[in-house]
Write a protein that binds this DNA or RNA. Structure first.
Lengths: 338, 338
DNA sequence: TTGAAAGCGTTACCAC
DNA sequence: GTGGTAACGCTTTCAA
């Protein structure tokens, strides 16, 4: 039951266990002959390196902690996938934790990951305040935030230009002839939401159209919350031709409400999302939206983290990637006779 | 930069470091007075336990390895979420690996996880052969397979009764008046698929109706593959009133094809899925399907694994959970004048 | 080129 | 109750 160690190999191969270590770790200070012999023996005995002991002396585990609100969430799961792939490529493995949108839980798992000696942590923060709660840890643990634009914070982050995202979307809607565009589901407490809303407002201003914002008082942007919000919104008169949802999930909630009310999308109302989660391209959903380039975000996050890990006195970095319009079927050209 | 260790605390508190260890681990053989003192000092110095060193001597890491084909996949991501939650509850953390549907990769990450000394591994196997490739490791590493019914294998697994799943679905379709039901997307090489297909065939036989099976030659059941398969299928005459898809993903692919061909679901054709992935309940999708109880599967998998971990000479266990019909909007009652 | 031994941060055993 | 110390499996000096 006990696993084979280098001592076992040393005994079998008639060398010291220092020599075995050297042979296995590819050290140059060993003769080819003994190396070959040791390698042969260790293979025969089915040796596997004990990374725990390795980490113990090297003081690095080759582990990255990933904290997300919930991997169930399609945005997070995609991100987790790409982060794992990219980390694997660089020789790192992933420890996954869900914070369940709970700031205290976020702090707890952060501490657990530190206890487990991860070399660094990538976190998709639950709120714009997260980095404040984590401040005591951030000095000693290389950390990269993903998703939120923490422009004023002295921490590394990777996010997209959310402001530009809504501007791009507005440009597109405007080009389709829309002049009455409602922004749906703005949430407080998130920089991301604030920036997106600002992009919308500025676009309206420049186009000389009146901004209409439907605020969300929910703490997360789930389909369910979008649905509830849409129901109250749609109970009132509809004096807009297009709806720009703050997130794809909100857009899907909106869509659910319109389905029930027999409002046809895009025939009666155009709908635009934001994020381009996997759901968006499903048949019958076919949501026009603004993409967050997940793979690029993931790769950048991992690279930024590894840089910090390998160069502890390096400062922080802010990476802002470009969003992109994904044209699908939920926005229609407005006829002139509207 | 160096983290505080129990030796630092010992020095500061003027006790031996054995005493510090006792105080921190809640040992009873220590006076309340010194414990309080040590705890105070360690708190003041911001001590966090080093789990690596802990694992080194305890020979257990409190880590569970999770191998899935891809967390991007909605089924896997949901499972990963619940497994993490349940493991966390039991004091375990998760190491996540994606195998990318590649058997060799599966073997590689399995080895990595063993090297990292995880206490046990939960794997959603890529194929029914996976456990054969992993056989050499399975004797020494507690492992639980999830999703595949490996009835004849001496390994622990948790899965649903897939045979019963299609029987339940067929009963429902029959009850709605359907007599011409096509089974869509049967895939070779997966026990799951075989059992589902058998359930379908036996149900047909008992009902005295002719089975029609559309086989899939793809290696995975993605939406894309379902779409391609559906396109060739729908090019031929449609002599059935309902389609039972092997998986929800296949059903969504089918749905995409019907959308393009202006075939209305459920008006022209009823559609039933299998799995109840999150997508299924989205607005406009609203897929009637057979549920795999993910949370129960996750909890059972974790519990089964922990049992094996805590009792190494225990045998293997086969857990077969019950599928359930989820009635939504893609199956319609057939009128008598069909 | 090889071996002996220290050390990584804990726990656990044995004295006192 | 408390302290000293070996041990976990590895890497890395330092000698030989």
């Amino acid at each position: 039951m006990r696993r084979v160690t280098i001592k076992d190999i040393a005994k079998e191969a008639n060398v010291s266990y220092a020599t075995v270590s050297r042979a296995l770790s590819g050290s140059p200070e060993i003769s080819e002959k003994t190396r070959a012999h040791v390698l042969e023996v260790s293979k025969r005995m089915g040796y596997t390196k004990n990374y725990i002991a390795h980490a113990m002396v090297k003081k690095r585990t080759g582990l990255i902690g990933l904290i997300v609100a919930s991997v169930k969430n399609p945005f997070m799961s995609e991100l987790a996938f790409h982060i794992e792939q990219h980390a694997m490529l660089k020789g790192y493995n992933l420890m996954l934790c869900n914070s369940s949108h709970d700031t205290e839980r976020e702090r707890q798992v952060f501490e657990v990951l530190i206890s487990r000696q991860v070399d660094g942590i990538i976190i998709v923060p639950t709120s714009a305040e997260t980095h404040r709660h984590l401040a005591p840890y951030l000095e000693t643990t290389p950390t990269v935030f993903v998703g939120e634009n923490l422009r004023d914070a002295a921490v590394s982050y990777v996010a997209i230009d959310n402001y530009r995202g809504t501007r791009i979307g507005m440009e597109y809607l405007y080009g389709l002839g829309h002049r009455d565009i409602l922004y749906f589901g703005r949430r407080k407490g998130s920089v991301t939401h604030q920036l997106r809303a600002n992009g919308y407002i500025d676009a309206c201003e420049e186009a000389g159209i009146e901004p209409m914002i439907c605020h969300s008082s929910y703490t997360s942007s789930s389909i369910q919350n979008g649905y509830q919000l849409a129901k109250t919104l749609l109970a009132k008169p509809i004096d807009y031709t297009a709806v720009f949802a703050a997130t794809d999930s909100m857009a899907l909630g909106f869509m659910k409400a319109t389905s029930e009310l027999k409002i046809r999308i895009p025939k009666d109302l155009s709908l635009m999302g934001f994020d381009n989660i996997q759901y968006a391209e499903l048949p019958r959903i076919d949501l026009t939206t603004i993409e967050q380039p997940q793979q690029a975000i993931a790769a950048t996050a991992v690279d930024t983290l590894l840089e910090r890990i390998n160069n502890p006195q390096a400062g922080y970095a802010h990476h802002v990637l470009s969003p992109k319009l994904i044209e699908r079927g939920t926005c229609k050209q407005l006829s002139d006779t509207e």
